[in-house]
């Protein structure tokens, strides 16, 4: 897969998906648009994690750190300045800067893979505890109170850059999150076909060999980590815009674990896996919530265990294996 440029059918699928997505809001009511937009936004978060893990071999358990940071940065900046376009971009840049700092110490410190998972998880939990502790009046950035565990309500909606008087409404958020999800997915897919992406996959396969060949693996890993931090930050900003609300729950262990579950269910070896995983799990948990089964988390846990034990590759790669197997069987019968 790696190294190959996308085939014509891939581009055709992307085109079709874009057309369907852009037409969809005309046929969906507002509640559906909201439900689907949040799946797109969370899929971006899953994509950032799946890219790092599946392609770069780095299991970051704490992409929620950059997700939450993106959301909070946007909220604080936009509320202080009353201007949302620059807040949007600065929030993403701050997430990337934070990823650069965290990633530098982990990757240049040459800590092992398992510790990278632990440290990223601890970072997001520290941020969560930190934000939760800011309920007092003294915790103010500019004119914005951080509000501790109540979070920040009244996060401004995005204004159109060319017309700040107009704010994005629910269908606007749908268009924006759908377009950005497609854009990030296509961008990452093309990145994997580039020299950078091919070296990154080489690092996942055998970091020592990459270094013996003369590549400085640390630079590639750090670049991938910062990029993924930016994507998670983008998801965080969109999350704040979507619900006009950010809270410490964005950093929470539950959220962090869910991202890993989405990626495992969808499959990490393909970029589309985390997107599909997010959609399936979110849809499933919404559906379970309406079925009166009691503990939704418990059932999701069962689903996760089935995937880890039975479908180790995740949904999509397993389906592809099954198709390949059926094809071989049919081919043999004909021969």
């Amino acid at each position: 897969m790696a190294g190959e440029r996308p085939a014509w059918w891939w581009w055709a699928s992307i085109g079709t998906a874009l057309v369907v997505l852009m037409a969809a809001p005309s046929y969906l009511d507002i509640a559906d648009q909201l439900d689907i937009s949040i799946i797109f936004i969370l899929a971006l978060l899953a994509l950032s994690m799946g890219f790092l893990w599946g392609q770069g071999g780095m299991l970051s358990f704490g992409q929620t750190a950059f997700f939450g940071l993106g959301g909070y940065s946007y909220a604080v900046l936009a509320l202080n300045t009353g201007e949302t376009t620059s807040a949007f971009f600065i929030a993403i840049a701050l997430s990337m800067a934070f990823a650069l700092a965290v990633g530098y110490f982990m990757i240049y410190g040459r800590i092992s893979d398992i510790y990278l998972s632990v440290i990223t998880l601890v970072v997001t939990l520290i941020l969560e505890k930190g934000i939760r502790a800011t309920s007092g009046d003294q915790y103010v950035i500019g004119s914005v109170r951080l509000n501790g565990q109540n979070g920040i309500p009244t996060v401004p909606s995005l204004q159109l850059p060319w017309n700040p008087g107009t704010e994005l409404f629910i269908d606007g958020v749908f268009y924006l999150s759908a377009a950005l999800l497609v854009l990030v997915y296509v961008g990452l897919r093309l990145l994997l076909a580039s020299s950078f992406g091919r070296v990154l996959v080489g690092i996942r396969e055998n970091e020592r060999r990459v270094e013996l060949l003369g590549y400085d693996a640390r630079r590639y890993k750090l670049a991938a980590f910062v990029l993924a931090g930016g994507i998670a930050g983008l998801a965080g900003v969109l999350y704040g815009v979507w619900g006009n609300f950010v809270s410490p729950a964005m950093f929470h262990l539950n959220q962090a674990a869910q991202v890993v579950i989405w990626v495992i269910v969808g499959g990490k070896s393909w970029l589309i896996g985390p997107v599909a995983g997010t959609a399936v799990v979110q849809y499933l948990s919404n559906w379970l919530g309406t079925q009166g089964v009691g503990q939704v988390s418990l059932w999701l846990g069962v689903v996760l265990m089935i995937f880890v034990l039975v479908f180790r590759e995740g949904l999509l790669p397993t389906a592809a294996l099954a198709i390949a197997w059926v094809r071989r069987r049919l081919g043999r019968r004909e021969a």
Partner: peptide
């Protein structure tokens, strides 16, 4: 020196156990 610096200077090694990218073509 770091591994990649030595690689760049021009020392190449085939390790004892095949040290390749197994999952890649």
């Amino acid at each position: 020196a770091e591994k990649h610096e030595i690689g760049r200077l021009g020392i190449g090694i085939k390790n004892q156990v095949p040290d390749v990218f197994n999952g890649v073509a």
